[in-house]
Design a protein around this nucleic acid. Structure first.
Lengths: 204, 204
DNA sequence: CTCGTAAGCGTACGACATACGCCTACGATC
DNA sequence: GATCGTAGGCGTATGTCGTACGCTTACGAG
């Protein structure tokens, strides 16, 4: 075997992640990642066939870090699900710009699969069967993905909310008032408030 | 006033939407839209300053079509919210590829603002105040956005689910079985099942 | 020591957004 | 009806992107 590879997939993904964290998802380019690695642009193509594969590596690198060990079984199942959701959210929150990539590549990520497997085990133990189980898993995923994107692109405490609370109150009175109140709602309160509601509803 | 504009914003947005519907979001380019309109690439720049503005027009065109009239007030508030969510989902489902644009530009879209205004009015009438109202609106939006993206990029009846149900059952037994069951769950069952759960939870 | 394979690089091409400058058609004014 | 300023529309040019292709170079097995 001639000439061993000098870069691991993890190093590739970390470099890409560094670019994304610094310049946003739009800043991700083969050139930028190559420069980050101190190599020529085309050198990168010895490791990945195309940009999409690099994106998959990034997703795996991020999602692979999720703790998928089953939470302590003595806790009620609702709490255990919340623990799992919290882990996923914490992991993705560290790199919010990759969430769109996650959505696109989630089917091939062992990370999400392992996470889903653990969540399903809890749901099954809690008595979820058939369609009800499918709906529970999908709605949890949908909520996490949607909430993270909303939070990243327009956090409650950010410009958007300020702009809305300044709207002509005659046209959008409820929006203006709600936006004013929203400034006092932290990102965690918002996320876990909605999650708690979803969990209550799934339970009944 | 010299030389009236020969194209309306709506015509611009419709052309862009046609491109997106045909070639996906990745196919959206100034060149493609200009060609769709039968004009030169640079001619487009007489109407929009930059690509982002064209995207905003598309979002407005789509979201502006949402019916934001308050639903019949004799219905229970939960049903009225569901009607509003259904309208939003139906509108976005017609052009699923624009959902990511929607997320990015939602703050400036009168369509979402009007929709939110109507939803807030229902929530207020139902007794939602302060943080609880904020959380309700945001979690509904998060769920819709997340669910639509999941459905578009990997519908339950699609390849992804088939691929998952073919995974080595020793490693992902629950996933494999759940995916098999998921093939019998329609997109509407999935969406409204999760929505119903969220609504139940918000109510308590 | 030799040699085949893979590593890594440079160049090149076509698509993209878009700045700039040109000619042109129109409508308000005289 | 002639004039003129504004906006419409186009062509060209620049810099970025992904990536195909071919070259040189370093390594390890024989």
């Amino acid at each position: 075997m001639p000439r061993p590879r000098s870069l691991t997939h993890d190093q590739l993904a970390s470099a890409a992640l560094a670019v994304i964290d610094r310049d946003g998802l739009a800043g991700l380019s083969m050139r930028a990642v190559a420069k980050e690695l101190g190599m020529s642009t085309m050198g990168l193509y010895r490791y990945v066939d195309e940009r999409e594969e690099l994106e998959r590596l990034v997703v795996e690198c991020v999602l692979g870090a999720v703790d998928t060990e089953p939470p302590p079984p003595e806790a009620p199942w609702g709490e255990r699900i919340e623990i799992m959701v919290r882990r996923l959210r914490d992991t993705l929150s560290a790199h919010p710009a990759v969430v769109p990539l996650t959505v696109a590549h989630r089917h091939r990520s062992p990370g999400v699969l392992r996470w889903s497997e653990t969540v399903l085990a809890i749901l099954i133990e809690a008595g979820f069967e058939g369609e009800r189980r499918v709906v529970a898993l999908r709605s949890l995923l949908a909520y996490v993905i949607g909430a993270l994107q909303l939070a990243h692109l327009g956090p409650l405490s950010g410009d958007g909310t300020v702009a809305i609370s300044a709207l002509r109150p005659t046209e959008f009175p409820h929006m203006a008032e709600t936006a004013r109140q929203a400034r006092n709602v932290g990102a965690d309160d918002e996320f876990f408030g909605g999650l708690a509601a979803l969990m209550r509803g799934l339970n009944t």
